[in-house]
Design a protein around this nucleic acid. Structure first.
Lengths: 150, 150
DNA sequence: CTCAAATGATTCGAGCCCTGAATGATTCGA
DNA sequence: TCGAATCATTCAGGGCTCGAATCATTTGAG
């Protein structure tokens, strides 16, 4: 009975992260639907808010997506009045994006939605457990080169 | 300075689960590529191994995907010799799937891959921290109705 | 100063993944 | 016994993303 179990797939961190990530993203997507947004749009807003980048190309690199995808997302966010877009005077090839006031407010609402989903997902955890889970994931995210604010 | 930070998106559990889930899945997908498998194929093998279901419809429900998707996955896994497929004698509409010996071996190899990725992802955590992270995620997964073996 | 090469943005076509509708086979129930 | 229900299967379509091609602008070599 001291034999080590063969490592099962569902006991792995990777599998649990993958499946829970899907659940979290699905719920977040549903919550965003009424605003006409997708998670990536919100990620773009968050990247701008964090000052991670300002030109579209830099944004694409920071987010790990194709530059062409940033174009269409920026189009939509601009149409919603969430971002302002203007050419860099110093290099007119670059499109500079900036959060508007409305954009910042929108981002905060979306962040609040995310935290509401957190509460559902982690309902079975004590506040202390939830906090240390959040922190541990922050370490992994930072290690993986993902955006992490504290 | 005692003011509470406005809840940022990237500090949320949901966001971290979503992004880390993508990273984990991407790496797992890459590791699986040489075998011609996708994560969903492995999830199907795991569901069979766990005895979660045996008919294709039950499998689809257990996995949360369309029955038609199970058809094509079962086709491929059968072609690889990982699953055996036969009509239920008691109800010949039902297709029963079962893991073959090769299928079980394949699943174990894939699980080992997942655990190798775990080690990369959680390299910055102590063994104890890693274990409590794994356990906390197990609680959330169980709560969310996801497959969890211990 | 000039022009070819490099760079950023944009458009657009292609590929992948998944779903839902339509169909066929089989079983169930009045 | 036959119409309704159920399971499997096929297939066309939609959503999401990328990469190639194109246009505007800048840079650097001469």
């Amino acid at each position: 009975m001291s034999a080590v179990n063969p490592p099962s797939l569902t006991s792995s961190l990777s599998f649990r992260l993958g499946t829970l990530g899907t659940v979290a993203t699905t719920r977040f997507t549903a919550a965003l639907e009424e605003r006409g947004l997708k998670p990536k749009h919100v990620a773009l807003l968050a990247a701008l808010d964090a000052g991670a980048a300002s030109s579209q190309l830099e944004l694409a690199q920071a987010m790990g997506v194709a530059p062409s995808l940033v174009v269409s997302m920026a189009d939509q966010l601009q149409a919603l009045g969430a971002v302002a877009r203007e050419r860099d005077p110093a290099d007119r090839r670059r499109q500079m994006l900036a959060l508007t006031e409305d954009g910042r407010a929108l981002l905060h609402e979306c962040a609040a939605q995310a935290h509401a989903i957190d509460a559902e997902l982690a309902a079975a955890l004590s506040p202390a457990e939830r906090e240390s889970l959040r922190r541990a994931l922050g370490v992994l995210a930072r290690e993986a080169g993902l955006p992490v604010e504290e």
